[in-house]
């Protein structure tokens, strides 16, 4: 299988650890979101996997082999590291052609990926005139060139317009659905929540989490239920007896929020008391809330803004 295995990986730049004894696995058939604050080591890890930087210790393998040992690696691994990396004075087509030829990828693939990424009409224009979104699409086209089983994409939705964001989401889902291994870094939580199945979270070069996205959100958010009932007095009393705190919802539309309970628990209480329930749902935290809960706890953000203090003035 073509999984990515990162084992005990460490990288230092000038004595500072960018990646610190990192171990995780990226499995095929699902989209793995690669999260972490700026400077957490996501891009460094990707460069180490691609053999562009050398680790101080530890290993990174793709399908059990070091990337640098792969023959014609673009046929196994496609990567988007930096959308600016295409030379500005080349045409999109020449950029892809040079990459394809080096790995003996047939020329028709160049036209196919240009078509697939919506760049066919811009193929003969120089990259200089491309918008950021078009460069991003060109980077994705390059990653798809060798029809690879493994994809590493660093911030692929950067600079894409709303239509492009929907496109990349569907592309990632499709690639994972075809059984490919897909690792996607992002700092946009709500965006990541729409395509990721699994999460690997870094903070200061260390692994903070390697879990399915659902579990991650559950683990880092507390249970809360939204309920609307025909007999508020009875249900409120019943819930209070069970020790649940009940608060009126913010909208004042008769919905309550029950803290520390699940829909199953509240439903059971209501059934026992014979109270009619019109609406009952778990309030799930968003990925963003869960992520912030984790990274704040771990003190992971290296470049967080300092809390605002009110300046005091002597009069």
């Amino acid at each position: 299988m073509t999984s990515i295995h990162v084992t005990d990986l460490t990288k230092e730049y000038g004595g500072k650890r960018a990646v610190d004894r990192l171990t995780f696995t990226v499995e095929p058939g699902r989209v793995t979101g690669f999260l972490g604050p700026n400077g957490a080591g996501k891009s460094t890890t990707m460069r180490l996997v691609l053999g562009l930087d050398r680790p101080a210790s530890g290993t990174a393998t793709v399908g059990g082999r070091a990337y640098t040992a792969l023959d014609e690696p673009l046929r196994t691994v496609g990567a988007l590291l930096d959308a600016q990396a295409a030379h500005a004075s080349r045409t999109a087509r020449d950029h892809l052609r040079a990459l394809a030829v080096s790995n003996r990828i047939p020329a028709r693939r160049v036209d196919e990926v240009l078509e697939e990424t919506g760049l066919a009409s811009a193929a003969r224009r120089r990259v200089r005139v491309f918008s950021l979104g078009m460069r991003q699409r060109l980077g994705i086209a390059a990653a798809l060139l060798g029809d690879p089983a493994v994809l590493l994409l660093d911030e692929p939705s950067n600079g894409l317009d709303p239509e492009g964001i929907v496109w990349i989401r569907e592309l990632l889902r499709r690639l994972a659905g075809e059984g490919r291994t897909v690792l996607v870094s992002s700092h946009l939580m709500n965006e990541t929540a729409t395509f990721a199945d699994h999460l690997v979270v870094l903070g200061r070069g260390r692994l903070l989490a390697d879990v399915p996205m659902r579990d991650f959100i559950d683990a880092h958010s507390h249970a809360r239920v939204r309920v609307r009932t025909g007999d508020p007095v009875l249900l409120r009393a019943a819930l209070a007896r069970q020790g649940y705190a009940v608060a009126d919802g913010a909208d004042g539309d008769g919905r309550w929020l029950v803290e520390g309970a699940t829909a199953e628990q509240v439903g059971a209480v209501a059934a026992r008391e014979g109270v009619p329930v019109f609406e009952l749902a778990d309030e799930r935290a968003s990925l963003e809330q869960a992520y912030l809960a984790l990274t704040t706890d771990a003190g992971a953000a290296e470049f967080a803004a300092a809390p605002r203090t009110t300046p005091t003035r002597e009069v």
């Binding site: 562009l52 640098t68 792969l70 690696p73 673009l74 930096d82 990396a85 080096s102």
Partner: peptide, 9 residues
């Protein structure tokens, strides 16, 4: 980086 990802040797 693109070049060396294509030709790691």
């Amino acid at each position: 980086r693109n070049s060396l990802a294509a030709v790691p040797h």
